[in-house]
Simulated scan of single mutants.
Amino acid sequence: MSSNSRIIGVSLGHRTLAEADHWILALDPAPVLACTHLVGEPFPHVAISVLSVSPITSPPELRSAADAAATGRSGRAVRFPGVERLTGDLTVGEILQRSSISRVDVLGGGPAEAGTVVATGDFVRPQFQGGELVLVTTPAAGGRLVPFERRDPTPCCADH
Rank of each mutant, 00 (worst) to 15 (best):
D105N: 10
I56H: 13
I48A: 04
S102K: 11
L25F: 04
F80W: 09
L25K: 12
I48D: 01
A77D: 04
S58W: 07
R63K: 08
R125L: 15
L33D: 14
F80V: 05
V50F: 10
P59V: 07
D67M: 09
F123W: 15
V117C: 01
D28K: 12
L62I: 02
V32A: 15
V53A: 13
P126H: 11
L133K: 05
E132G: 01
S102N: 14
V106A: 04
P60Y: 05
R103E: 14
G142C: 07
V32D: 15
D67W: 04
T137G: 01
S58L: 06
P59A: 03
A68R: 10
T36I: 08
V39S: 00
V124E: 05
E41Y: 08
P31F: 07
G115F: 02
R73G: 14
V39F: 03
E132W: 12
S100Y: 07
H45G: 01
F43A: 12
I48S: 03
F80G: 05
D89L: 09
I56V: 13
V134Y: 06
P55S: 11
R103D: 05
E19K: 08
A114T: 08
R125P: 03
G109W: 10
D105W: 04
F80S: 06
G131M: 09
A26Y: 04
A47I: 11
L135I: 01
L107C: 07
A141W: 03
G143K: 00
V118W: 00
V104T: 01
V78K: 01
G115R: 11
A26P: 03
A65R: 01
G110M: 08
A140Q: 12
A112V: 10
I95A: 00
R85T: 11
H45D: 00
E61Y: 11
D28Y: 04
V78A: 04
L90E: 00
C35P: 00
G108P: 07
A69D: 05
P126S: 10
F43R: 09
F128Q: 15
A114S: 11
D67G: 00
D122E: 12
Q97C: 08
R103Q: 11
G82S: 09
R73E: 13
G130I: 03
G115P: 00
G88V: 08
R76D: 12
G130P: 01
E113V: 14
I101S: 06
T116Q: 13
S64I: 05
A65W: 07
E41P: 00
W23K: 04
D122T: 08
Q97H: 09
T138M: 12
A114C: 06
S100A: 15
Q129G: 00
A20F: 06
R76G: 02
E61Q: 11
L27E: 13
T87I: 15
D28E: 12
S74G: 13
V134M: 07
G93R: 09
V92T: 08
A140Y: 12
P55A: 09
R79N: 09
W23D: 01
E132M: 14
A112M: 05
I48P: 03
P111L: 04
E113S: 13
S49M: 10
S49A: 15
R103H: 03
T91A: 03
L90W: 00
L62T: 00
V92R: 02
L96T: 08
G93V: 05
